[in-house]
Design a binder for these strands. Structure first.
Lengths: 342, 342
DNA sequence: CTGAAAGCGCTTACAG
DNA sequence: CTGAAAGCGCTTACAG
């Protein structure tokens, strides 16, 4: 709002609506005794004039809008790095970031609105139709980061080019001369996992490399999935010479499985991760991985959230940022092979 | 505040102070034309009666107090895990957590107060006397996590038993039969680093093991410090057989340095970390480390912050939680030695 | 430096 | 279902 513009008062709205201040007050406070049509007209005007109840004025004027970031499960590197992007973008825009675990108490969306939040950003959260309805009723915009579900056009989301990333990771291994490449992935239901896996399949098929059923194992995006999955893969009669992991944590689990078998990385087994969290740089050997621009994704989510909070329209309900293969020391040609290309 | 108790009004304060409502209003709004003594008396009463200006009421009533958590540098595992503890404790208490990078704009403390924050928790932040004065003037309580400076009794802080942790880590290595043990630490100025280092020295001296100057290297709490420091140590004429690292990141850097030299862990070199972040569990081999109860420390900091925000006194201005050695696979007896004790 | 008085924005009990 | 009127909590221009 312009610096000198007087703030909209109930009297302004009353005048515009041709009703008394008392009636407008009742609408604002959700009292029952207002005719539906009057209520609707007044609500429309309140919205048009950006009326803000006194209790909310403080938040708005002093600190700019507040955005709620919700995550589910642990505050892992993936979440932390995305959050860092959100925080830095918010600082640039003068917005505040409240962080909490996703909760599904009754009326949670309405509670967030009354607590002054202007939008929600969800990292690693699941949203059902019920939740979306609750948000819509509360008038609270939602931006989902790396959605687990298929983009619904009622939801705004920010992701990365997972298919292209899966393709690049697998092509890298193929170009090193690997043919027996396994995919150790996340949940079958997660679209990001599906896209990575199909990128892997596409690369394999393009090269005429067979994808055996036993080489594709879904799981969770966790270290345990990597550890157990890799043990199972290495137990196969014809074990893979390379593993493409659905994320960095899975890759680290796979590396540890190899180590306990006395296999060296990358000499005996190549491993590629996904995300390029700080875990990848600090692994030993440093992990070849597909970089997701997590900070940029966080920044994009924050800016989208602010625009929606402002009532602006957004060009597209889904934005996808580019992934990039980062080659480090966990990949090499397979034992005894001479590198196919380079 | 009790559910039925009427909220304190300016009239209540005016009556208690024996002045007019107008005068109290002036004090609340920091206008100049009030006698210093009158102002002081009124301020005292406002505080005693927990008077809240209308603009702040919303925050308080709907969502409970808001605590600002500030960090400096990256949102690393150490910070993320502590933050997780803060978030979960806040959820239990009905408090909200705003997260931001430490900023030192003029009047930052006053701005935080006007933005409705009731306390600040600082992770990995440096506070000078100037900052403390600014906080004091704004009436904003501060809790520092794992303070870099010596506990000042104007500051409330939460830490861990760093000396005992350094002692336990070193004793573990000594008991495996190591004598040539190096300490690869963080900043010389950081008290937590000093305590860990003196724990190391104490254990060495108790065992009659010499501490060579070249074996004690300060640095930053980063992977690079570990990588470069370990390279330098391994280049010594008599390299150490074990490295005690000031935190997990340094330990991972040291592990990578060993790997690039063709040394195996723990056969050729033992490494112990500090913190027990998720990095330690996911390292390959999994890292023996000194656990700091980061989530519990975060919880303790949040609860202290809430009590201070409430105007309650706190028993001690510094709380220290216990560390614990977690033995994993990165430590073993030195090459060719038979384990001294067990 | 203080406070009586006017006034602002809002809410609510009540008459119609 | 509506609004005139009383009232609440607060602020401010101004007289003393």
């Amino acid at each position: 709002m312009p610096r000198n513009a007087r703030r909209t008062t109930l009297a302004d709205i009353a005048q515009a609506a041709g009703v008394s201040v008392a009636t407008v007050s009742k609408v604002v406070n959700d009292r029952g005794d207002v005719a539906p049509r009057t209520r609707a007209r007044v609500q429309e005007l309140l919205h048009q004039h950006h009326y803000l109840a006194p209790v909310f004025r403080h938040t708005e004027s002093v600190e700019g809008p507040t955005i709620e970031v919700q995550f589910k499960g642990g505050l892992k590197s993936y979440v932390a790095e995305t959050l860092e992007g959100i925080i830095d973008s918010a600082a640039e825009s003068g917005a505040s970031v409240v962080i909490s675990r996703a909760s599904r108490a009754p009326h949670w969306a309405r509670d967030l609105v009354s607590a002054g939040r202007r939008a929600v950003i969800a990292i690693t959260s699941v949203y059902t139709t019920t939740h979306l309805n609750e948000l819509a009723r509360a008038g609270l915009p939602l931006v989902v980061l790396d959605p687990l579900h298929l983009p619904d056009n009622r939801v705004n989301s920010v992701g990365a080019t997972n298919f292209a990333g899966g393709l690049a990771a697998t092509q890298h291994l193929l170009s090193l001369g690997h043919r027996r490449i396994a995919y150790l992935g996340g949940p079958t239901m997660a679209v990001c996992n599906q896209a990575r896996m199909h990128g892997y399949r596409a690369a394999m098929e393009a090269q005429g490399a067979p994808v055996r059923d036993a080489y594709v194992r879904p799981g969770e995006f966790t270290y345990e999935t990597g550890l157990l999955g890799a043990v199972a893969l290495l137990d196969l009669e014809e074990p893979p010479t390379a593993i493409f992991a659905g994320n960095d944590e899975i890759a680290l689990g796979a590396m540890e499985a190899a180590r306990t078998r006395g296999l060296r990385i990358p000499e005996d087994l190549s491993v590629v991760g996904f995300d390029d969290t700080s875990l990848a740089q600090m692994a030993s050997p440093p992990l070849t991985t597909v970089r997701q621009p997590l900070r940029e994704m966080g920044g994009a989510a924050l800016r989208t959230a602010l625009r929606l909070a402002n009532g602006e329209k957004v060009e597209s309900h889904h934005i996808e940022l580019a992934t990039e293969l980062v080659v480090r020391a966990s990949t090499a040609p397979p034992r005894g092979a001479t590198s196919a290309h380079r």
